[in-house]
Amino acid sequence: MDIPALLEAASLLVPEEGATENDLTVNDVWEYLIRDEWEVALGLLEELGDAQASLSLSFWENLATAAEQMRLEKSAAWCHWRCYETRVGIIRADLTLRPAAEARRQSPITGAGVLRPMWNIGNRTPTGDPDLNIAALWVEFTPFLEPGGRAPVRLAPLSPQQWQHLRPGQVITMHEDRSVAGTAVVLEVQRPAAEPAA
């Protein structure tokens, strides 16, 4: 088990001397580790990381390492996803899939970042046709999204520079072939912390 990876991630939290009673600190994580409650410690660190946008890449890399050593595949996948978002930024959207009767897709989408559909985000080819861009899809708060269902999602673009123009409120469409598989409204666009202000 990688205690150092969890402790290093925890060390990026609020220092003990500056903590309030509601802050999670290294000592809190250590308490779970000495009781062999590895998954609880990892879960606490993941929740904290999701609540704080400013945590470093090394925080998520350490959590991913620990999750892999614990053989917690979904946690490891989530931590790797957050590593990617730390490097390139966060794009969240509210996605509604077309009903099965109206679309090619008849089965649910696996929520954990496996699907890499194409998206019409407004880019055009030199001839003026829509230029579809690929982005992996993570469905938040549920393991699957049924045809006709609606959920908040996170997108991990294959070519992030082509997505720079997105703004909250913009409508984009998801494609698994030429037809529209779903429609999404952009909820949030966060640039990476290291990116210079525009």
Results as ranks from 00 to 15, higher is better:
residue 130 P to L: 01
residue 145 L to K: 03
residue 156 A to L: 05
residue 174 M to G: 00
residue 135 A to W: 01
residue 134 I to P: 11
residue 144 F to V: 15
residue 180 V to R: 01
residue 178 R to G: 15
residue 156 A to M: 13
residue 169 G to L: 07
residue 147 P to G: 06
residue 153 V to M: 05
residue 168 P to N: 06
residue 157 P to V: 04
residue 139 V to Y: 00
residue 162 Q to E: 06
residue 153 V to E: 03
residue 145 L to S: 09
residue 144 F to K: 12
residue 176 E to L: 13
residue 178 R to I: 11
residue 134 I to A: 14
residue 143 P to A: 03
residue 125 T to E: 09
residue 127 T to P: 07
residue 171 V to P: 08
residue 177 D to C: 03
residue 150 R to A: 01
residue 151 A to S: 10
residue 134 I to K: 13
residue 165 H to M: 14
residue 174 M to C: 12
residue 174 M to S: 03
residue 147 P to L: 09
residue 146 E to G: 05
residue 142 T to I: 11
residue 159 S to Q: 14
residue 161 Q to F: 13
residue 165 H to Y: 13
residue 130 P to Q: 10
residue 158 L to Q: 09
residue 132 L to F: 07
residue 144 F to Q: 15
residue 140 E to F: 10
residue 156 A to R: 08
residue 134 I to W: 07
residue 163 W to S: 01
residue 137 L to D: 02
residue 173 T to P: 00
residue 157 P to A: 08
residue 122 G to H: 08
residue 132 L to N: 11
residue 121 I to A: 03
residue 142 T to A: 15
residue 165 H to R: 11
residue 132 L to G: 04
residue 170 Q to S: 11
residue 180 V to N: 04
residue 174 M to R: 07
residue 144 F to L: 15
residue 122 G to D: 00
residue 164 Q to W: 12
residue 172 I to N: 02
residue 174 M to Y: 02
residue 141 F to M: 13
residue 170 Q to Y: 09
residue 134 I to M: 11
residue 121 I to H: 00
residue 146 E to N: 08
